[in-house]
Design a protein around this nucleic acid. Sequence first.
DNA 1: GTCAGCACTCACTACAATGGAGTGCCAATC
DNA 2: GATTGGCACTCCATTGTAGTGAGTGCTGAC
Lengths: 354, 354
Amino acid sequence: MTTTDDSRHEGAGADPLALDVRKSAILNAVVTEYIGSAQPVGSQHLMDAPGVSVSSATIRADMAALERDGYLAQPHTSAGRIPTDKGYRFFVDHLVGPGALDPVGRQQVRQFFDHAHGEIESMLEKTSGLLADLTDCTAMVVGPSHETSTVRSVQLVGLGPRLALLVVVLADGAVQKQSIDLAEEVDEDRLSDAGRHLAAHALGHALSQIDPTPPNSGDPLTDAVVAAGVEGLRHLGSAEAGDQLFVGGSSRMAAAFDAVDTVRSVLTILEQQLVVVTLLRDVLDRGLSVAIGAEHGVEPLASCAVVVMPVWVDGEVTGTVGLLGPTRMNYPQALAAARVVGNRLGETLSESRR
Amino acid sequence: MTTTDDSRHEGAGADPLALDVRKSAILNAVVTEYIGSAQPVGSQHLMDAPGVSVSSATIRADMAALERDGYLAQPHTSAGRIPTDKGYRFFVDHLVGPGALDPVGRQQVRQFFDHAHGEIESMLEKTSGLLADLTDCTAMVVGPSHETSTVRSVQLVGLGPRLALLVVVLADGAVQKQSIDLAEEVDEDRLSDAGRHLAAHALGHALSQIDPTPPNSGDPLTDAVVAAGVEGLRHLGSAEAGDQLFVGGSSRMAAAFDAVDTVRSVLTILEQQLVVVTLLRDVLDRGLSVAIGAEHGVEPLASCAVVVMPVWVDGEVTGTVGLLGPTRMNYPQALAAARVVGNRLGETLSESRR
DNA sequence: GTCAGCACTCACTACAATGGAGTGCCAATC
DNA sequence: GATTGGCACTCCATTGTAGTGAGTGCTGAC
């Protein structure tokens, strides 16, 4: 009797997230089952789940308790149970292993990154496609922020009498540009002259750490152009320039929901780069790798979950990979895929920096 | 009596697309009504349509004839009629005026292009958003092809011991890049030397018209780098490099159809840049500005129509704007919006070339 | 605490009945 | 002879009525 007493105390502990061993197993089984079938799960189906070797009646009692505690919900009286956001949260937090990618997926990832080359943008774009393929979710990839990347080359190109284009190549191979309006007419020679001064001033520095006051060259017009160029450089390195976002597999959202309205509102969100980037950053800042339902503050995504992984380049977090799917998405698979792809992406980017 | 005889002859002419004045009016009314309501249109509702001042019985007879000729279809026996692709085609081909944008839309367009500035990519991206807003369709914008644009600046930047980045600025402000694998290790000095040779060779020429055999410089290693650079340039100018496509408002497709499956297959197509660009080009090449249903060969878009307008820059067609919607889209509005936006976009791009 | 048994709930399906929008046809009319 | 009002007909959509079955909560026995 003492043993049963013990387990009962375990279940009734102060921590609202602590659960009976069996209840936990049941919850796990419900989530797993529901992720696969998208149908409410009844007590009968759970009898042969691992860690649950009791009768359906007992399971029913436990499920009723789980519902009372907010982990499960019933669409209607005579239906099975589906997990609530809280239920998914418990599932994710108490996942045993880190989850591994299936062999086929691992092969895909290896093949992709072994052949990855060329422009960074197209690689990130393709990475989002890869992630979407692996997980059947919509994938989001935020490119390395340019604040910390060092300048490899700076050039001023005249486009019109009072219009110049500032072209910057960063160490990671990213090319940024910024049009610069000139107050006065500047001839080609003086422009390239200013370009050289600008290069001398900025080369080798991170975009965000460029001294806002360049040294005087002696010629006021050149100085003005250089100053405009420095301003442009700093703007490119500032947060306003915005990180580039690549969304892949948005069509998967249409397969995930059967309500057209939901699909529409989710797609609308995905069209707003700023919202998506902010969402991913927020989740990461809160130290989470999964945000379920209402946990992220974006109203129209209430029936969605987000999986986020940082991308480490040379010991710094400079990018993000993310997945968006219905709350009943396959979390183990999604987490594994995001982790693996995020890591390999970071490695690949680190290599190309050298 | 002769007058009625005349009108009958008109309707029974050899041209299968020629129609009775009244039948034509009825068809017009059906299309207009159906575009608005998405519901099959009955004979009663057409009695007060302009150009149709006859009883419902007469309308019924005409509608039966129109169905026999393939312009209309009936979902089922006791329902109203909906237009077939052929019906839409007639509607589009016999539209009276060129159709004008509503004042609000016109204001939006004016405001947009008056404030348009900066990088060409972000402008095209925003243009696709504008078009989607104006028409409630998904908008596609294909940027100016780079084949004909002249080279304003060429630069070689070393990224690694055997990796260089070719950065090209074109006259329209587009920046292109291409990574170049070098067979041997090349130091910074020699690289910039090769860059100067490359620039001297390519500056002022259109990307596609660069002489594939640059003059010898005397130094074999430099020559090798220059040759690789020329190849890179020609690749950028070739069709393979692909035109850049911007898709805006893809969420509108979810609102247009109520079958989730349709939405998914359409979104899947929209994710394939090459397919979309090819589709737009094909339609334009066939001299059409509208392709309805099966007219474009893309199977999954069978329930969609495409509206295409060329973008003229300095007397040449270099880009495309397009709209994708259900076959029951608002053609007059879509055509007007695409025409206006395409024209203004062309003007804006032409200006920035100077 | 666990379990078999039992009554109960409620979505889902099938089926018939009804209403109505719309059609096709025909005889009368202009 | 084109047009029209009248009329029978068709068939979708809606409603109502069981019947079915999956699933639940409860209870008393072990």
